[in-house]
Design a protein around this nucleic acid. Structure first.
Ligand SMILES: NC(=O)c1ccc[n+]([C@@H]2O[C@H](COP(=O)([O-])OP(=O)(O)OC[C@H]3O[C@@H](n4cnc5c(N)ncnc54)[C@H](O)[C@@H]3O)[C@@H](O)[C@H]2O)c1
Ligand SMILES: NC(=O)c1ccc[n+]([C@@H]2O[C@H](COP(=O)([O-])OP(=O)(O)OC[C@H]3O[C@@H](n4cnc5c(N)ncnc54)[C@H](O)[C@@H]3O)[C@@H](O)[C@H]2O)c1
Lengths: 208, 208
DNA sequence: TTCATTTTGTGATTAAATTAACAGATTTTT
DNA sequence: AAAAATCTGTTAATTTAATCACAAAATGAA
């Protein structure tokens, strides 16, 4: 029987990973749960509990000493799907799309963008070292085993999503502000500036 | 005594608003909680509960008929944006920053970007109708009453955050992948492509 | 070595969020 | 106008998540 990682815990893992990377960069070898609290604002006891999901072997966290930064990074990377050489495609190479593409730096965390698609014939060719296809060629040129697509388009969104699902895409990172529906079992992760600002505004406001 | 809106509820409001805007656009006048479920994937009973936080006056949701789309949008906008004509500033007008700026379409939801700052002298001037200042002029030109800053820079991040806090910024929308600390009471909302992909990858992966 | 100190890991507890269940309001049908 | 069918709003039950509290492990000092 495998341990099931709770939703809440899962959503904190990327935060830990980010903080730990920073620490590794600064040459830190060991870290206490209390130090992680300082940096992430997540309660130390919550952190310790979360981290138990990683510790299959012992000597993970040592009382009196803390956790090995490297060990944690490895553990988190593994559970977060990293190592996953999963190919990712990007649909829509406009302002936002090309910013994302240029920022294609997450190979070390989770796959890389292996291809782009746009409806604009003028965009065809290559950009930041990645091939840009016309959207009509999606089915022809779709990379085998690709399960994740980044959506940064502005038109025909539902239709495009349908095509992606037919091709076997299982997860969509959604930058569009439009609404679309997906079939059972397909995951969508919206990334939304406006929603972020709204939440922020509400939080700030509700404090008074 | 005011009703306190729970964290979880709050985080769903932007989702509802997005869905409702889409419906309004399509000319829909009324909506059932079950229809909102179809579109958002949030359980209808959860939705009904959430919406009670808006209904100060009655005739909000009518049994057998549903909610008035317009009514809901108004209610949500009020509670989320809070009249906030709040000026927002953008720090860092690189690839990502200018994509965001170009997309400055959220005036109707929550404030607007009134000024940008960059460390690159070449960027000074105007972009998409918004003034771009040099970061050295931050203190001189800081818009009064500005409480929200969007961070899309790549260097001197902690220092920049400190300056923003000194100027009274209460909320930061963070696109950088770096870690920085903020003082008690300052809210940070990370918007992170990599974290999004990681969560997605984990979800997909953990299904098998 | 022994003892005090630190810090983890986890059962027990409390708090928060979701879901179920259903009474009662509203509309539609007959 | 009564009966049947819909849906909301809310209380209660359940599930999930966060926190507390402390025993046991490792460290470092005496
Ligand atoms: N492009 C993406 O998809 C993406 C995604 C996630 C996160 N990010 C992050 O967002 C940030 C910006 O990304 P980008 O692609 O636009 O990079 P970029 O290099 O194109 O733009 C950065 C801009 O910010 C300016 N800048 C840097 N440091 C500054 C400072 N301290 N004060 C004022 N201006 C400063 C630079 O002059 C430049 O114009 C980076 O931290 C990056 O890691 C980017
Ligand atoms: N720019 C932002 O900051 C920002 C923020 C949040 C959301 N968004 C959303 O992201 C999307 C893209 O934004 P942008 O600023 O890059 O817009 P853009 O117009 O610059 O880019 C859109 C690109 O997608 C292509 N495209 C449109 N529909 C397509 C389709 N069906 N198939 C293939 N290619 C298609 C267009 O040819 C264009 O190159 C929009 O939906 C926008 O609402 C943008």
């Amino acid at each position: 029987m495998e341990k099931v990682i709770s939703k809440a815990t899962m959503s904190r893992f990327p935060t830990y990973l980010k903080a730990l990377r920073q620490m590794a960069l600064e040459g830190k070898k060991n870290v206490l749960s209390s130090e992680l609290y300082e940096v992430t604002g997540i309660q130390d006891t919550t952190i310790r509990r979360d981290l138990t999901y990683l510790s299959k072997d012992e000597n993970f966290g040592k009382p009196g000493k803390g956790y090995s930064v490297k060990h944690l990074i490895d553990g988190l990377s593994e559970v977060l799907g990293v190592g996953l050489e999963s190919p990712i495609i990007l649909i829509g190479v406009g302002n936002l799309g090309s910013a994302i593409l240029k920022y294609n730096r997450w190979q070390y965390t989770v796959g890389k963008i292996v291809g782009c698609y746009d409806m604009d014939r003028n965009k065809e060719g290559e950009l930041f070292g990645v091939k840009v296809h016309h959207i009509d060629d999606l089915e022809n040129t779709f990379p085998p085993d690709c399960e994740i697509a980044i959506l940064a388009i502005s038109q025909n969104i539902q239709e495009t999503v349908d095509r992606l699902m037919d091709l076997g895409v299982k997860g969509i990172v959604d930058f569009t502000h439009s609404h679309f529906t997906v079939r059972e079992g397909i995951e969508v992760k919206p990334v939304d500036v406006v929603a972020a600002i709204q939440e922020l505004a509400l939080k700030i406001h509700s404090k008074r």
